[in-house]
Design a protein around this nucleic acid. Structure first.
Length: 507
DNA sequence: CCAGAGTTTGCCTTCTTTAA
DNA sequence: TTAAAGAAGGCAAACTCTGG
């Protein structure tokens, strides 16, 4: 017993008075309780200026704010009172038990996520703390004041149906910093990347954990006790105290040598165009690591253990196209492009420089998530069979700034009118079996959209006629409706051999 | 000094939450 | 719906303290 508290004696006398004279209903309830509040239970009502309390003063607000103690009512304390088990026992076994401080956090309200409501006591303490700071204080005092006042704002906000985000907390901290006037105070915003906003639940959990950490660090509570009294997880608190709450939670696992071989095998498969999905890796992973079953965690940990691996999206590649492509074909293509672009003066005027950029969209997905080399943009995946379901978009414009309606080439047998809804006439539709651009549709687009209208008015028709003739003569694509020829050009494009690349190489 | 009970801590797995 | 991160729980070894 450290100190006799006059207020406790008064309260005991008051209870005795209620038992004998029954002056009120509330007192009747108290008198009817079989267990009377003891002195230790009542001390929390009136913090005194003992050394223990002084030491605890700075964390008082946080403790009160975050433990829902503010919900307590006298009736609660009476009906839920639990005699302290170690009240009469020496607590010498503990390095420093929190039992001497239990009046701060009564055991009757230890919900995991307490409801924070107003209680004059905690607000009064915060106001008193502010007043002391106003008279001047150390740098540590001011730092703590920023934290406390921010916590006060959070406390008040929680009384209302507001969602508290960490942006709010940062704003409160900055505002308090201006009031307190702490030189050199900087709000950490997480570097170049903005911090993720937190929900009120997350913010509450974080602040509760910080309060529990403070209890361990400054008051020398045990982790177990602090975790229990604050309603946080023991391991979580331990991890935070050991700075293990960020990044990996456990030590670097040992990698079985067989698993290294598996990683190499997966990389080799990815490199040869036959990447493996996670289920392919399941059986070896389970066997190597002596697991009973395979789940997502095993896959994730396998990838984490091997930094050269990650989940990638495949890029479907047609084996037939690869086989058709030869060096001779590439040389022929480049020589023809060079002749057209330079020797026939197609690049002399801006109005003569047209760019048609073809983009192909898959309507039938032919990609998958596979295990491949980290950082690689495209993981090619071989397939045999029919062509993909495609929609080809072909925008067209010239160097003088003239933009023409784009061509949309759908795969199918006939036009669907609804496809043009909302395009305001800026779409030139086309349909063929594959959805891939062919000579006929390309020529029709040139004849119907590029050559007429403004282009014809500016007398560019001869240019396009020459271009069409050249294409017809040199590439023989108008008369010969050879689909494979077009596919070769697509194959060229896949190989990175485009007119722009050829032009850049030539220059 | 030793046994035993209680506590702390590390490692691992499983569950939950969140974002895309 | 799924991947990823975080939280929580189980287990066991190490540690601490007490009593004989």
């Amino acid at each position: 017993m450290d100190t006799v508290y006059p207020m406790n004696i008064l309260n005991l006398l008051e209870t005795e008075y209620g038992q004998h004279f029954q002056p009120s209903d509330s007192h009747n309830q108290a008198a009817g309780c079989s267990v009377l509040p003891t002195e230790e239970d009542l001390r929390f009502r009136l913090p005194t200026n003992t050394s223990t309390v002084d030491e605890f003063e700075k964390s008082f607000a946080i403790t009160n704010l975050l433990n829902g103690y503010t919900d307590a009512t006298p009736d609660d304390r009476l009906t839920n009172y639990e005699p302290l088990s170690n009240e009469t026992e020496p607590s010498s076994r503990r390095r420093k038990s929190c039992s001497s401080l239990e009046y701060r956090i009564p055991k009757f309200h230890l919900t995991k996520q307490p409801t924070l409501t107003t209680r004059n006591g905690s607000i009064r303490q915060l106001n008193e703390w502010e007043r002391q700071l106003a008279a001047g204080g150390s740098r540590i005092d001011k730092l703590e004041a920023i934290g406390l006042k921010t916590g006060k704002q959070f406390f008040l906000a929680k009384q209302k149906p507001h969602v508290v985000k960490d942006m709010d907390i940062q704003r409160w901290a900055l505002t308090t910093h201006r009031d307190v006037g702490l030189a050199g105070f900087q709000l950490r915003l997480g570097g170049a990347k903005a911090p993720k906003l937190k929900t009120s639940t997350e913010a509450h959990a974080q602040l509760t954990l910080e309060a529990a950490s403070q209890a361990v660090a400054k008051l020398e509570w045990s982790e177990r006790e602090s975790a229990m009294l604050y309603g946080v997880n023991r391991r979580t608190l331990s991890n935070r105290l050991n700075n293990r709450h960020l990044g990996p939670h456990r030590k670097q696992p040992k990698i079985p040598p067989q698993e290294e071989a598996l990683a190499d095998f997966v990389l080799a498969c990815s490199g040869t165009g036959i990447p493996l999905i996670r289920q392919h890796c399941a059986a070896p992973i389970v066997e190597i690591n002596n697991r009973h079953a395979f789940n997502d965690q095993h896959s994730c940990r396998f990838l984490q253990r091997h930094p050269t691996l990650s989940i990638r999206v495949t890029h479907a590649n047609n084996r037939k196209k690869d086989r058709d492509w030869t060096h001779e074909l590439a040389d022929k293509y480049i020589s023809k492009l060079t002749e057209l672009l330079f020797h026939r003066a197609f690049l002399d005027e801006p109005e003569q420089v047209w760019n048609l950029d073809e983009s192909v969209f898959n309507t039938a997905e032919m990609f998958d998530r596979v295990v491949g080399r980290k950082g690689m943009r495209q993981i090619y995946s071989q397939f045999d069979g029919t062509e993909k379901e495609l929609v080809t978009i072909l925008p067209c414009g010239n160097a003088a700034g003239l933009q023409l309606p784009f061509m949309a080439l759908f795969s199918g047998k006939r036009h669907v009118r609804s496809r043009l809804d909302g395009t305001s006439g800026h779409c030139y539709p086309g349909v063929n079996d594959s959805g891939t651009m062919d000579q006929l549709h390309f020529a029709n687009y040139l004849n119907d959209r590029v050559i007429p209208g403004e282009v014809a008015a500016k007398d560019y028709q001869p240019i396009f006629e020459r271009l069409t003739e050249s294409l017809s003569a040199e590439l023989d694509i108008v008369d010969q409706n050879d689909r494979d020829e077009i596919l070769e050009f697509i194959g060229l494009k896949q190989r990175g051999v485009t007119p722009g690349a050829v032009l850049a190489a030539s220059l």
